[in-house]
Amino acid sequence: MADSKSFYSLDYIIEINEKRLEQYSEAYQKNYNRFTNLLFIYSILGLFLVQLTQRLIFDNIGCWFDWNHLCFYFYIVVLGFSLFNTIRLLMPISVAYLDEPKIYYRTFRMSYEEEGKTKEEVDNLIKASYINELEEAVSINKGLFTRKGNFYLKALQCGLLACIPYLFCLLFHFGIKTDTIQKVEIVNSNKLNIFDKTFFMAQDKKNNSTAVNPSPAPTTSSLPGIKASDVKPSHPLMVREGLGANNSKK
């Protein structure tokens, strides 16, 4: 029993290498499975990215190097570094897998037997070849697991760090948006008041001019008991409305 756990035993060396290879392979795959965490963070960070870019860059609000723009620049840089590591995480790479076992119990065994080796010597030599393959696969997959794990960790840390300036940018965005809506409402109200005054003044002027110089009613009027020449003209008020207003009236 004690001999089975001895590092002088080839069987034990094979056993521990096979376990390590399985552990590193599973850990390597977990890095890809955890990509959903990054995807969730990016879905939040990119929710208002277009609006923030339009508000701070294309609308030229404030100075290019004020506090709000600096937060936005820091957010873009950190998010870009996170995406860069995510791309490196998802890039395909060569993973070590064990060769088919018949190469040992058929090809290698027959070759050793042709050389005149004894059964015990053949068994130990085949185990040694198998151990060499295991050790190489363990070493390669350990390096892959470590590299991909570092890429995931950097992407996650930068993604979480980008949430801080992102929140400040959102506060600035919605604060500016509220102020803009209030200003637009005030301006539109003033314009409507001026338009109403101008419109009614034009209507009064039109009515006065119509009263001084009345135009004859159309001769096509044929109301019973009414003389057409005594009827003062009246016309409907034409107001241009959008499609939504017409639909609402219906």
Rank of each mutant, 00 (worst) to 15 (best):
S189A: 12
N207Q: 14
L167V: 14
D66Q: 08
H173L: 15
M238H: 04
D123A: 12
P216Y: 09
I87S: 03
E135N: 07
I226K: 14
G244D: 04
G80R: 05
R34H: 05
G159N: 08
Y73R: 04
S4A: 09
F65K: 12
S43V: 01
P101I: 10
N37P: 04
N124P: 00
V231Y: 00
T178K: 08
E136K: 02
L21P: 02
Y105I: 03
G149I: 10
N17C: 09
T178M: 04
R88W: 08
L125K: 06
I61V: 09
Q29W: 06
C158F: 14
K148W: 02
A2Y: 00
N68S: 10
L70E: 13
F200D: 08
I61W: 02
A155H: 07
R240E: 08
N85M: 10
E115G: 02
E241T: 09
K119M: 02
N188A: 14
G143S: 10
S139V: 08
L98V: 03
T198Y: 11
N37W: 07
V138M: 09
K177Q: 14
E114G: 08
P214Y: 06
I76Y: 05
L170I: 09
A96Q: 05
L125V: 00
F108M: 15
K206G: 12
Q29H: 11
G149S: 15
V78D: 04
A245E: 07
Y104M: 10
F108A: 15
V184F: 04
V95F: 15
N124L: 12
K148H: 02
N132S: 12
W64C: 06
A27I: 01
V231K: 08
S222D: 11
E121C: 11
E22I: 05
K249I: 11
P92M: 08
F151P: 00
N150T: 03
V50H: 07
I41L: 09
L49Y: 12
I93M: 14
S94K: 14
L83D: 01
M201G: 00
L134G: 04
R240M: 05
N207H: 09
A162S: 12
L192M: 12
L125A: 11
K205E: 15
R240C: 08
S209P: 00
Y28D: 04
D11P: 01
A128Q: 10
L45W: 03
S9I: 05
K191A: 06
C169D: 13
N31V: 07
Q51C: 03
L192P: 00
E22S: 14
E241C: 14
V212H: 06
Y112D: 13
I76K: 08
S4H: 05
S25R: 03
G244A: 05
I181R: 03
V212S: 13
R88C: 05
P233Y: 01
V187M: 03
G143Q: 11
A228L: 05
E18K: 14
R147F: 10
I44Q: 09
F200V: 01
Y104H: 11
Y130I: 01
I57D: 06
K142M: 08
K148M: 01
S215D: 05
